[in-house]
Design a protein around this nucleic acid. Structure first.
Lengths: 212, 212
DNA sequence: TAGATTGTTAATCGATTAACAATC
DNA sequence: TAGATTGTTAATCGATTAACAATC
């Protein structure tokens, strides 16, 4: 499985393929052609075949793709066969929502601890995940082999904490703060900018009103 | 201001420009050239000029761009000069987090009501936003001229509720359910797929480990 | 074998970058 | 006026789509 230099456009589509294939698998669909899938997902069959062939041949001429096999393979490409241990940084509303959400649904991803600056939260738990003081964070990351830090703190705090995180063996930051984080190459960052998303929606509302 | 057929690639960059220009404005920076901005934002000056020129000339040769003016204009393009009234559908953890978050920070966007199937929540409030039974939703949308429905319910419920929403005068859906919604053209949809985002992060962790 | 559908090459399309004339 | 920097055209690059030979 050779996969250097896959474009982010392709990577960005993999989770959607994974989702549709999971649904098809659950519906008991054993095989699917790129044409059928293209109709369901509203993309071209050509794009589907090109995308999959970035990672090697998953299909069979004259047959199509085996749904479960393709589902599993895409899961592996996405690293979903690995265990990811996470910490929450910032135990506010959004952070609590994420912990509740993830620890229910996603087997591979699990929160091991949460950190906050508010002393009133120390010792409390969110969905069985204990909340600790910020100054125990670095030690906790090392001892528990934490891979991913989930940042749900305000902008200024996010920048400061990121600085601290760069001195730990953390592998990735899932960032919900409204700021672009600067990190060394060895740390992966994925940001969820909720404001940006809402602004795009706002643009499209306005555009549609002006057009019609 | 002519702006038909602007590509989604450009739209997707506007909120980021808006964010950086807001920061510069707050720092008291009065003017900025595409070159300076390109250095700060880590994109090419050429792209910046091309992007802005999709909407007409905001700059001045030999001078650059006036920070506040550009900030305001991009705000208008994004429809941030308009008031957007919203409802929350699904008053769970994530929904509550969004209401708390938005009603604090974003002036143009405001939640007017929340809806849930759980009777125990009726009459309660989230950050001053009252929670009502689901069957009052359609009436509420009409009476209060609601523009945006924020969907924080499970997948199956999201599909059902979207069906109901298509029969109301709602303009847009901000979707947090893990599903692609089908709506008529007049309704804009923007989805935040948290799982997809986390999977991309997972892919990048794995890729980086394999490379080094 | 014939039919179906992939894997892959070639063609097209769109987005990004470079270059430079226009102009403040 | 000279210098700076935009607005815009042209060149390049990359991503998507089309076409078809390979093959199950």
């Amino acid at each position: 499985m050779e996969e250097r230099g896959i474009s982010q456009a392709v990577i960005g589509r993999l989770p959607r393929y994974y989702r549709y294939l999971g649904d098809l698998k659950n519906e008991g669909v054993e095989r699917i052609s790129s044409q059928e899938l293209s109709r369901i997902m509203n993309v071209t069959a050509s794009q589907i075949r090109q995308d999959f062939n970035n990672f090697g041949g998953f299909g069979q001429q004259g047959y199509g793709y085996n749904t479960s096999y393709l589902y599993e393979e895409i899961g592996k490409i996405l690293g979903l066969d690995q265990q990811h241990d996470m910490i929450l940084i910032g135990a506010g509303n959004l952070g609590q929502a994420l912990v509740n959400y993830m620890n229910l649904k996603n087997r591979g991803f699990s929160f091991k601890g949460a950190f906050d600056i508010s002393p009133s939260l120390y010792g409390k738990k969110i969905a069985n995940v204990p909340i600790y003081p910020m100054d125990q964070m670095t030690g906790f990351i090392v001892e528990n082999h934490i891979d991913i830090a989930v940042l749900t703190v305000p902008k200024a705090a996010a920048i400061e904490i990121t600085q601290i995180l760069t001195e730990t063996p953390i592998k990735a930051i899932w960032n919900f703060a409204h700021v672009d984080l600067k990190v060394p190459d060895r740390i992966q960052v994925e940001s969820v900018h909720l404001q940006d998303s809402l602004m795009k929606l706002s643009y499209n509302i306005r555009r549609h009103e002006n057009e019609s």
